[in-house]
Design a protein around this nucleic acid. Sequence first.
DNA 1: GTTACATTTAACCAGTTAGTTAAACTAATT
DNA 2: AATTAGTTTAACTAACTGGTTAAATGTAAC
Lengths: 206, 206
Amino acid sequence: MATHKDEKTESRIKLAAQKAFHKKGFDGARMQDIADSAGINKALLHYYFRSKDQLFHTIFQEALGKFFPIIIGVLESDMDVEAKIEKLVHTYIDHLTQNPMLASFIIHELNQNPERLKAFLIGKKVPKPEKFLQQIAIGVEQKQFMPIAPGQLLVSIVAQCIFPFMARPMVQFMLSLSDKDFDLFIEQRKKEITDLIIHGLTVRKS
Amino acid sequence: MATHKDEKTESRIKLAAQKAFHKKGFDGARMQDIADSAGINKALLHYYFRSKDQLFHTIFQEALGKFFPIIIGVLESDMDVEAKIEKLVHTYIDHLTQNPMLASFIIHELNQNPERLKAFLIGKKVPKPEKFLQQIAIGVEQKQFMPIAPGQLLVSIVAQCIFPFMARPMVQFMLSLSDKDFDLFIEQRKKEITDLIIHGLTVRKS
DNA sequence: GTTACATTTAACCAGTTAGTTAAACTAATT
DNA sequence: AATTAGTTTAACTAACTGGTTAAATGTAAC
């Protein structure tokens, strides 16, 4: 297993660390567990990442890096509002399906230490969703959309996508969903959210 | 300070423990900090609550006890759908305004140990939101509401209420809200959510 | 004034955990 | 053959943390 400059080891460590941190959080995760899970020993773990803080930092930055570009990329594109919302919902849900603990992890660690957000943003180009917000504002002005605050709408869309992943145990209990049911629920949800939001947004003549 | 069977001490401990657990989670909270924050010493803390687990259990049960009755009480009442949704949104947001970390705390700890939910439910009467779900189903059948899965609607409502509290740092950054702005945002949100949902739900003839 | 409980003090124990160290081993590089 | 870097082993430390203990003190009730 001892090969020169083995990339596998580092990525195995990162995968193991991701699993541990996402599931247990910084405080709950154990370096020994991460080493075991990566199939190496503590000494080598510290050889690659000097400290738990540094390892966590790497994982957390990566998590944030996955989260922001999605939303920003879609929101700043040239689609019209309806297409943009649909795309955003689909992208978000697909991404969270593959990283179920991602949202919960970011939220928890960000609440513990909100400064991390600013630390992350330093150096990075992090455009804000101005374009989408303006599109909504214009639609409202032209009486094409119901009078809604653009920021409120954005939060509502994101909330509906992210929440069920974070509150999975509660949702499953309240709606009596098996694990299979839950997957179905999430898949259906793409259309349900899109329809509810767009229909709620659109002005219709009575 | 040493009075007979002093209730103050226990409630001071519980308040301090709540603060600590809500903010740092089980793993992050320290018994020493809780004792300090309660203005007592570790020995007395263990005199009241034998262990960290027991103290946590008390706080967690209390948190869940605050969370469920709200939603169930409203959802199983006799109001019509529109009034019910409005009431639910207002009740939730008011409650979370006074306990900003409550949702984040429950979500995090429940994800770490989903069995806690079942443990909590044992012995407690925990009705499910069947009535509300049926009201929606009937409305859909009668073409009064748009064709939506009742469970999806319920999750969407709750998501929109809870999410901004959990994701506060992110929301504040993305929308450039000061702390004051955020409070305003939340207050406005009551109407925005209610309107968006009800308008999105209602069938209108074109 | 004695009893009973609440509280403090301060030291202490035992287990856990992040992180270190040094020696030996492995395999590709030169 | 010598070099170099990745890796293992195993023992160790230093700090932290949950929890305990025992002795002393305070305070109200009986």
